[in-house]
Design a protein around this nucleic acid. Structure first.
Lengths: 135, 135
DNA sequence: CTTGACCTTGTTGTTGCCTACAAGCTGTAG
DNA sequence: CTACAGCTTGTAGGCAACAACAAGGTCAAG
């Protein structure tokens, strides 16, 4: 039942058919098993993995960084202290991104509020204030 | 005092000298005034603008999207309802990104905790759980 | 038993975002 | 007055992340 083809995988993850092969070449997904006809066969974990990749990309991680994220759990033999250190670094990175987004959000809210006040002339620029919060 | 050259601008914003010209071509910064020697001269607002661009890029906005963000305040003649609607859309977008990052953060914290517990064998994969929160 | 959708490989093209020339003008320090 | 950093233009190169071929094998429907 759980034999997913390349086309099905692409459709379910909403990515291009060829992108699957690209991710395979880049080592982002495991090299898949093949059926009798030499077709690639995938499982549900690959679906989840690609969806994770997409979400991580949307918030600004490069494929290389995503590889790092995914590699954290793969190295079963890795020492825990190392994994923790790498995880902590990524958490700090994520926190910085969240702070940046928070600053932008506040700027946009201020902009919208200025408009709603009926003040048609936007004198100052709240958007550019976003940089004030240190990255 | 406030005459900033291209090289100074690049240095202060920590971007490449040529990138300034690229941003000018893309309409991300205003076409600058020129001094007697035909050198581009910039002001502090351009510094802030480029810093904003950099921060927005780091959290995953494309240059096109950043242009949209910056355009929100430029159109002085724009109707307020329009600006508010566009700002609200961007806020929703930002909220989605923050939620994604929050899910990833929780996954990483769970991973680190599993490790700290002295449990050297990482059985499940908390990172892949990140996709469970809807984008 | 052929049509058409799907898969295989290798290779090339595209888009976004820079980055790096070359050839020449400008401005200042020694 | 010359060296040298810094500016000008136009144009070309480069990397990430795909996307799109071509030429052919596979398989279910009619």
């Amino acid at each position: 039942m759980a034999t997913i083809t390349r086309g099905e995988l692409a459709k379910r993850c909403d990515i291009n058919f060829e992108t699957v092969r690209y991710y395979e070449r880049q080592g982002l997904i495991a090299i898949p098993a093949r059926n009798a006809s030499n077709y690639r066969v995938y499982d549900e974990e690959t679906v989840r993995r690609i969806r994770f990749i997409k979400r991580a990309q949307e918030v600004g991680f490069t494929l290389k960084e995503i590889q790092d994220l995914l590699a954290l759990r793969v190295r079963r033999g890795a020492r825990c202290s190392d994994v923790v250190a790498r995880a902590d670094a990524k958490i700090a990175d994520i926190d910085a991104r969240i702070r940046s987004l928070g600053a932008m959000r506040r700027s946009l809210v201020a902009l919208a509020k200025q408009c709603e006040g009926g003040d048609a002339s936007i004198s100052k620029c709240p958007i550019l204030d976003a940089f004030e919060a240190p990255a």
